[in-house]
Amino acid sequence: MKSIIVFFVFLFSPLTIAEANLKIFCSAKANSCLWLKERMYELHGIKSEMIVKSSGEVLNIIETGAENFDIWWGGTGDTHLKAAESGFLAPITLKRKQDQLFWSRHLLDISKGRSVGVYAGILGIIVNKKVLSDLKLDVPLCWSDLGKTTYKNQIVLGDPNTSGTAYTFLSTLFQIYNGEKIRQILPEIKQNIRKTTNSGYQAILPLIEGENAISIAFIHDVISLLDKYEDLDVIIPCEGTGYEIGAASVINSSKNKEKAINFIELSMQPNIQNLLSSDIGLQIYSNINTVKSGAYNDEKYFNLINYDFFTYSRPMVRKRTLEFWNRLD
């Protein structure tokens, strides 16, 4: 019995974990996280433990104290920026910063060197055409259409408090509609919501099942499903849409900061990103020499707003935006 206890104490001692594995919160899709873990070991011999959680959840954990974790990989940039501004992230210096595209470097700049953009994804309205036609409803073409009373109980989306996707949706609307207009549109949309889910990706599942007609998600999360589920379709709203920059950061309390930075830099090379971009995650990846995304191969997806990551990641703005949403009932 004693030997068993000694074994477990050894197994979970911080020293063992720190030296053997990097502990990573991964807020990207689960299969991307798993592939990243395996590929990094295969190419560079780096062992890691991946905990898959939505970006909002990771932010909450970090804010309450995430001991023994080294890296936060993936998840919407605004949550990383908020953690950076609150002092939970360590500075990163990239050896080949010039290989990264403008948006990746931009995130590094506005986070004061604490988060770097790894991938990007575009937000869209995902519809189930069959449910819409059964209910004799039109396909929504704009964000403002989502507030129509005919879509009552037809929208499923992530909870903006925990889902980066849903927060991106909220801040996109705030950036498109200012002042009084947003006060009018958002309550109308909230009245049409059937339920909210923990993460943005989970919001697609009831749509596939035909439980509801409309969900809000990142396009790369659903593009691979379009062939399998013919009823699904992606709509780019007429007002233009927002996008996420998935970031990677080193947690301030990490005891393996150098290793962690190295992991992040290596994860931003084409030999890691190529397959993630073309086949697994399907997001737009940050290295200039990485192949193009398998999802965003059409010009129509790039009807984007000039998204202000800095403002909507500020703790006060985020708090105000979420409070505004939470108060609507």
């Binding site: 595209l101 403008f102 948006w103 931009h106 990007a120 575009i122 996008y243 737009i284 200039i288 020499n289 990485t290 193009k292 965003y296 790039f302 984007l304 707003i305 000039n306 998204y307």
Partner: peptide, 16 residues
């Protein structure tokens, strides 16, 4: 280009 993402994709296209 009106946004960072589209500009990045053109940069990638041009480089390749």
């Amino acid at each position: 280009s009106k946004n960072m993402l589209a500009l990045g994709e053109y940069y990638r296209d041009l480089s390749s």
